[in-house]
């Protein structure tokens, strides 16, 4: 890294789903990371795309302004602008991309389009403190969120290969849907996790998903829970009320067991130097504990970013943009949002 790169100041914007976020980085150090979570969706039990886009429209300027102010950076000091190009909701992406393009045009600085899923992994390369050592490559990352479940092999920064992914639901969806049938408010995944902490994970056993190479499938597990609850409710209408914490604990265990057994297989197949966890579900307490235990057992350094870099946030977009900026992977003003962006 040259002096120039460590002094570069990037503004990053993330608006792919229901979080409006802006961050300022100097080199690989985060100066600010402001996240506005849209509360409007809670009453509907899920993200409503039109409302998400409208909320981004009203949040974008205050959020970017706050990110610059917190960082103590003037907009004229910016070296480049990074923005989520996809994947995500089209209406939401439009707001961030169009706004970012205007900043690039007005300030005459490069525009960088970032892949949101790569950025979740790049979050591990944020220098969180002076003493922080960024993970050695190759790195194996398990990315788990409401929309994705992927095993990704990172050979070089930005050079990533998906070696396994879910063929149906994402792990986060499996948690959220369980929460819904258990009568927990949206977003339910974190609630299942919280309740599971005081439950007995061995009380109930759910069907183990079939193994399919390094790929995942969560729909069977989800159905298994649904049928299990139907049967139990027939016998005792108060079943959920009585056994909720134990159902949460047992179901969470089933998901985490499955996530890590496949990851273990991947570790045996690829010579990796470090292990990483990324995405919103990496906030799950049981997953964190068991992931770190797996790293210890295999004697491979394991990394989980700070919580604010796990869920959707602009700092991760910023760090990915910073690596892209150094390679001059710049976009032009005709860049369009890509709801199903791949790499």
């Amino acid at each position: 890294m040259n002096q120039n790169a460590s002094e570069a100041i990037l503004l990053a914007i993330e608006s792919s789903c229901d979080e409006t976020s802006a961050a300022v980085l100097r080199g690989d150090v985060v100066l600010s990371n402001v996240i506005a979570t849209q509360a409007v969706h809670q009453q509907y039990g899920g993200v409503v795309p039109e409302l998400a886009s409208r909320a981004h429209q009203s949040n974008i300027v205050p959020v970017v302004h706050e990110a610059l102010t917190k960082a103590g950076v003037s907009i004229r000091d910016l070296t480049a602008i990074g923005v989520t190009q996809g994947p995500g909701l089209m209406g939401s992406l439009h707001v961030g991309v169009s706004f970012a393009k205007s900043l690039s045009l007005a300030l005459q600085v490069p525009l960088i389009g970032v892949n949101h899923m790569q950025a979740h992994i790049m979050a591990h390369f944020i220098r969180q403190s002076e003493a922080f050592e960024i993970p050695k490559l190759p790195l194996l990352c398990l990315t788990v969120s409401g929309g994705h479940t992927q095993l990704v092999l990172v050979d070089e920064h930005l050079q990533m290969k998906i070696i396994g992914s879910t063929i149906d639901d994402a792990a986060g969806e499996a948690f959220d849907k369980a929460a819904k049938v258990l009568g927990l408010p949206y977003p339910g995944g974190p609630q299942v996790d919280a309740l599971a902490e005081s439950g007995d994970p061995t009380r109930f056993v759910f069907a183990k998903p079939k193994r399919n190479g390094l790929n995942y499938s969560f729909s069977g597990l989800k159905t298994s829970l649904l049928y299990f609850l139907r049967d139990e409710i027939k016998k005792d209408a108060g079943f959920i009320e009585k056994e909720r914490i134990h159902v949460c604990a047992s179901y969470r265990k089933a998901i985490v067991d499955y996530l890590l057994i496949v990851m273990r297989d991947a570790i045996h197949q690829y010579p990796v130097q470090s292990l990483a966890l990324a995405g919103g579900v990496s906030a799950n307490k049981e997953l964190r504990r068991r992931f770190l235990a797996l790293g210890e057992e295999m004697a491979i350094p394991s990394f989980i970013p700070d919580f604010e870099y796990c869920t959707d946030n602009a700092a991760m977009i910023g760090i990915a943009a910073w690596y892209q900026w150094q390679k001059k992977e710049w976009a032009d003003l005709s860049m369009t949002p890509q709801p199903a962006l791949k790499w």
Partner: peptide, 17 residues
């Protein structure tokens, strides 16, 4: 709606910057 999102976000970005 799509047109408005793009136009208004663009105008805000220029005004702000």
């Amino acid at each position: 709606y799509t047109g408005l999102r793009i136009g208004v976000s663009a105008a805000k970005g220029l005004s702000f910057a």
